[in-house]
């Protein structure tokens, strides 16, 4: 579905050029849910914007949904769906049904086709009865489902979701996860999403591309990654992928993870809501740390003050 080679983007800023993405290579197979995981500023959104034709790569090439990203960008746009990060509250005059039809028509559907598609999409995303509602009056979760419907109006086989659940309450998030999974399971849509929630990456993705500092630092399944980061507690075999920087020592780990450390604590509940400065489950307990059992895996993890 996607094949990217040396995709890079440098932004020119007042303080000189900043390499947001430094030449990434990866593949996404049909029917996969792939998560781009990493802290803010890791280059996830820039990668996504390049793959969706919103940002021209400084260098590198990619094939997206069978079309060349650079020379056939219009064809790429025809074939993909894109759901942006949650935006500002829509203008008061924006009506849900109208907006979805507008989107479908810009995708090239006729008025009749677009209206028929609207009727089909509303119940699929639990938006029945919202057709004439103003978007500005809807809740965050409802608006997010509308955003997803926008990206699906033209029935794309590949959908990009940029931080689909950021800013939502736990219930709305779980609900959205169900919708995203149903996309793949029931409608065989390939999905690429970005997230900085470890929990979300773990629950949704078949495969994770861990990004940091504009590079992909790991490419593996969530289980294999967990096994690698916490070898003592897992029976899964180590993978061949390697981390860019060495794992921090146990002492360092407990002195409030520095911004450059790259170990994942998959269990820590606090990491569910903060960027994953990947930090490891400590085998022995240093001073100032306490141990807690991870609900989802049953494994113990350490949090430090």
């Amino acid at each position: 579905m996607i094949s990217a080679h040396g995709l890079a983007r440098t932004f020119s800023t007042k303080t000189g050029p900043v390499a947001a993405v430094k030449g990434v290579d990866f593949e996404v197979a049909e029917g996969e849910i792939v998560g781009l995981l990493g802290p803010n500023g890791a280059g996830k959104t820039t990668t996504l914007r390049m793959l969706t034709t919103l940002l021209t790569p400084t260098s590198g090439t990619a094939t997206v949904a069978g079309a060349d990203l650079i020379t056939q960008s219009r064809e790429v746009r025809r074939r993909i769906g894109y759901v942006a990060q949650i935006g500002a509250t829509p203008a008061p005059g924006t009506i849900l049904g109208e907006e979805l039809v507008t989107q479908a028509r810009l995708q090239g559907m006729s008025k009749v086709e677009a209206s028929a598609r609207l009727v089909e999409m509303l119940p699929r995303l639990d938006l029945s009865g919202f057709e004439k509602r103003a978007l500005s009056e809807m809740s965050g979760g409802q608006r997010r489902r509308f955003d997803i419907a926008l990206g699906l109006m033209h029935n794309p086989k590949l959908v990009f979701l940029d931080e689909p659940t950021t800013g939502l309450d736990p219930q709305s998030r779980a609900n959205l996860w169900d919708h995203i999974r149903a996309l793949r399971d029931e409608h065989s849509v390939t999905i690429v999403l970005t997230t900085h929630y470890l929990e979300e990456a773990d629950v949704l993705a078949d495969r994770l591309l861990v990004m940091d500092g504009g590079a992909i630092v790991a490419d593996d399944t969530p289980d294999a990654l967990k096994a690698r980061v916490c070898p003592a507690t897992s029976s899964a075999s180590a993978s061949t992928a390697t981390w860019r920087s060495p794992r921090p020592s146990p002492a360092k780990r407990c002195s409030r993870a520095p911004a450059s450390s790259k170990a994942v604590d998959w269990c820590s509940p606090s990491n569910a809501a903060t960027p994953p400065f990947l930090h490891c489950c400590a085998p022995s307990m240093p001073q100032g740390c306490r141990s807690a059992r991870c609900r989802s895996t049953g494994r113990r993890s350490t949090t430090c003050s």
Binding site: L54, R78, Y82, Q85, G87, A88, L106
Partner: peptide, 17 residues
């Protein structure tokens, strides 16, 4: 500028229009 914040501009730009 408001449309940019709402994401309207981007969502229209990812269409083949």
């Amino acid at each position: 500028i408001q449309e940019l914040r709402e994401g309207v501009v981007d969502r229209q730009r990812v269409t083949p229009a």
